[in-house]
Design a protein around this nucleic acid. Structure first.
Lengths: 148, 148
DNA sequence: ATAATAAAAGACTTTTATATCTTTTATTTG
DNA sequence: CAAATAAAAGATATAAAAGTCTTTTATTAT
């Protein structure tokens, strides 16, 4: 549903949001290490987010990635859209060229409901929302014993 | 969520189920043409289903694919499992190696509950169930003006 | 200015999914 | 048995996603 790249993107943004409070920009080496992601690949993804104005960056010493004024208010669906495009949410689960409530495929009704829940959730929840959970220790960015 | 192959598989089984009532085995040429799927690729997929005892086949004249005694009672999740493996329903949406109710990723809580519903649905719904919908004209296998 | 630093850009590789083609094997029919 | 038929198996091709490496560009600090 979400590509691997998209997972990296969301986690990358949240990591930057989390660390930025320390008053510095966050380099790709640190991000990749912290999230246990492949450095160069993670770099490409973060660069893509900058290109699409989801986050900011500067080059040079003390450079790195940082949020812009809008970042915290961006709904997560925009990040998905920036990385994956939004077509994965529209395409028929069985890949029929036409599939609708009126002419549904055999799984349409049941799967589309789930997808709709996911879609609405991603539209509603912002970077700030996920960050708040993270700061409160309700969620984690890694998936191992680390503190993130 | 489901691979393209998996969509072909589910549609292929249902097409065979639908046509088998005519008292014949269904060849891959017919299946691929009816579902507007690539012939050779569809062949591989159907063969895979035979290998995993989801359906049966025989070679030679009047040969083709047909259901076995169990097919109609198989839950759809088993087909998904046979083609994609079942990891796609269990894997963390953000691809964290560990993600659980106790240590959730930022999207876990909101999505997992519903995904569980979906998973159970696919466990509950059988080939027969989808076939019944299809025969009743409530669903379709193609996605164009054809009668399927 | 120069050197150091870090992102950006570009080229390339690997992996996985999807798709195609050819040869082999099993089965049926004449 | 021979010929025809149709799936099975194997090899190969293509496309997309994921991942790696090198070079370039912008920025900072000395």
């Amino acid at each position: 549903m979400l590509s691997k790249s998209c997972g990296y993107a969301i986690r990358g943004i949240l990591y930057v949001a989390l660390k930025e409070s320390e008053g510095r920009k966050i380099g790709i080496q640190e991000i990749a290490a912290a999230l246990d992601a492949p450095v160069y690949f993670m770099g490409k993804i973060m660069q893509g987010l900058v290109r699409r104005d989801v986050i900011n960056s500067t080059k040079g010493p003390n450079g790195g990635f940082y949020l812009n004024e809008a970042t915290l208010d961006i709904p997560i669906i925009n990040v998905v859209e920036a990385i994956d495009g939004v077509s994965s949410f529209r395409r028929c689960v069985l890949n029929l060229p036409e599939c609708s409530d009126a002419h549904p495929c055999p799984l349409h009704t049941e799967l589309t409901a789930y997808r709709e829940v996911l879609y609405r959730t991603l539209c509603r929840r912002t970077v700030q929302d996920l960050l708040t959970d993270l700061q409160a220790g309700r969620t984690q960015l890694r998936g191992n014993e680390s503190l993130l």
